[in-house]
Design a protein around this nucleic acid. Structure first.
Length: 475
RNA sequence: CGGGGUGUAGCGCAGUCCGGUUUAGCGCGCUUGGUUCGGGACCAAGAGGUCGGAGGUUCAAAUCCUCUCACCCCGACCA
């Protein structure tokens, strides 16, 4: 166990807080509910951005930037939307020392300002689809905050697209939730459940919301990304029409989709352990750290010389030689483990003698001796193996903690202990969801896409259902 | 907004009940010098404090009283 970190067994949420602070991913800020993202955390966010951004562009999207301030009246134009967001908005009433004519809302999401702009950009079917993404900060005045998982201000990306038909928008909504799934699984090494949100859990202003849900180590669910089919709701609110091939004037169809810095919290709660952070290699800003071991100045020169020689030609962003003289190797081992670096290389006089290095895996702790010959390739193989192992471990945990339950009493007794529950619930009935929440603090996380057809009675009302939904306690 | 907790050196804390031998300490970290170095080294010498803020009681306040501010944790809302 690392110094100063509560173990997971002792107190899971305290472990999370200790880990985030001690690994220097983030710090509390002078403003309640806000956080400072430190280089260790921001580096992960940059890797998330780089990889997702590429995936967005490969699927035809381009980036733009819309302002943070939104006229208050804009937010009020879509009834369901304003109802959902008004209570959590920060509002600017003063500017330049004077009271503003109209208060400005700090964006909680950008649908309104974007659609007021799209109105000017769209007039013909030839302008569609319009596929734009933005990387931005948003602000939601939450009552209870948690580092990365829920902060007052957070960073995210929001895609906002416009389409000529309901079906085109539907295809986009689907496509993007699959992009998120692929990103979560291939980069975060985090298996997810893909499905649709219930009416009461969907985005305020959407026709429907698709989501990816992940399972944290304590068995709780975490919504990791959403993709919304907005129908013509915003087009109607902001009067965005286009002339179609058939000469008819029609409202456009919209989607929006986003993931946030919450993914960093998800990453922590999926892979990290009592020693500290564990970063999947594909997202690691620094995959390899080299710790030289020496006694005398002569050994220092020998070992550091060898380290430099052996890394000649390597991408400088791939590795770092920790040549700090004021710390002993053991201290460095612990520090780099705390910071989650996937592979640590130990290089001492013995290794130089044998023309080899010792490589330690962060995920398993396993140490192996690798010959200098072909080292770079071996490291790549090891990184791939780590990435795969992290995914497999998380997948296994999710599978082993997903249960089919048919009796409400059994569900009530078990759900507190974590896990996903495949259950029959009438998800079209709001009262069912409310009772579920009141009784068990759990919610329907999603109606999964891949649920086999299965018949059974709703655990609460007895009404026949044709498939199971996933219910769980969530963050 | 309810319930709980904490504010004393950069970090973690003791001291507060019962005011005065306290010149406000301890551990970590930091600085300097030396010895160390294959899993969180050791010795020595240093630097660092408006005791969260305001007011009050008193000969005397980190300590007692009143007010206040901030943050954290747990609940009700949410990516």
């Amino acid at each position: 166990m690392a110094k100063g970190i509560t173990t997971r067994a002792e107190d899971y949420s305290q472990w999370y807080i200790d880990l985030v602070l001690k690994s220097e991913m983030a710090d509390y800020s002078p403003v309640k509910g806000c956080m400072v993202i430190r280089p260790t955390g921001y580096g992960i966010w940059e890797r998330i951005q780089q990889n997702l951004d590429r995936m967005f562009k490969e699927t035809g999207h381009v980036n733009a930037y819309f302002p943070m301030f939104i006229p208050e009246s804009f937010l009020k134009k879509e009834a369901e939307h304003v109802e959902g967001f008004a209570p959590e908005c920060a509002v600017v009433t003063m500017g330049g020392g004077k009271k503003l004519e109209e208060p400005l809302v700090i964006r909680p999401t950008s649908e309104t300002i974007i659609w007021s702009t799209y109105k000017n950009w769209i007039s013909s079917y030839r302008d569609l689809p319009l596929l734009i993404n933005q990387w931005a900060n948003v602000c939601r005045w939450e009552m209870r905050t948690r580092l990365f998982l829920r902060t007052t201000e957070f960073l995210w990306q929001e895609g906002h697209t416009a389409h000529a038909s309901f079906e085109d928008a539907e295809e986009e909504t689907q496509k993007m939730i699959r992009v998120y799934q692929r990103f979560a699984e291939e980069f975060l090494a985090m298996p997810v459940l893909v499905g649709r949100k219930t009416e009461s859990e969907k985005f305020a202003g959407a026709n429907y919301t698709l989501c990816i849900e992940a399972m944290m180590q304590d068995g709780k669910a975490l919504q990791a990304g959403t993709s919304h089919h907005l129908g013509q709701n915003f087009a109607k609110a902001f009067d965005v029409k286009f002339q179609d091939k058939d000469k008819e004037l029609k409202y456009v169809y919209a989607t929006s989709w986003g993931v946030s810095t919450r993914l960093i919290g998800a990453l922590v709660m999926t892979h990290s352990d009592d020693k500290g952070l564990v970063i999947p290699p594909r997202l690691a800003p620094l995959p390899v750290v080299i710790v030289p071991i020496y006694r005398s100045d002569e050994e220092r020169d020998l070992v550091l010389g060898k380290a430099r020689e052996m890394t000649r030609g390597w991408d400088p962003l791939f590795f770092k030689i920790d040549d700090r003289d004021q710390y002993k190797p053991g201290y460095k081992f612990n520090e780099w483990e705390l910071k989650g670096i996937p592979i640590r290389i130990e290089l001492g006089p013995r290794d130089v003698q044998q023309n080899a290095v010792v490589a330690a895996r962060r995920d398993t702790g396993e140490k192996v001796t690798l010959p200098m010959e072909g080292l770079r390739e071996k490291l790549d193989e090891m990184l791939v193996a780590i990435q795969q192992n992290l995914f497999d471990t998380a997948k296994k945990r999710m599978d082993e903690n997903t249960f089919s339950v048919d009796s409400y009493d059994e569900y009530k007794a078990r759900v507190e202990g974590g896990g996903f529950y495949r259950v029959f619930l009438d998800h079209t009935n709001r009262e069912v969801e409310e009772k579920l929440k009141d009784d068990t603090k759990s919610t329907i996380r999603c109606i999964p896409f891949d649920a086999p057809e299965e018949e059974g009675p709703c655990m609460i009302t007895g009404k026949p259902c044709t498939s199971r939904v996933i219910a769980a306690q969530a963050y």
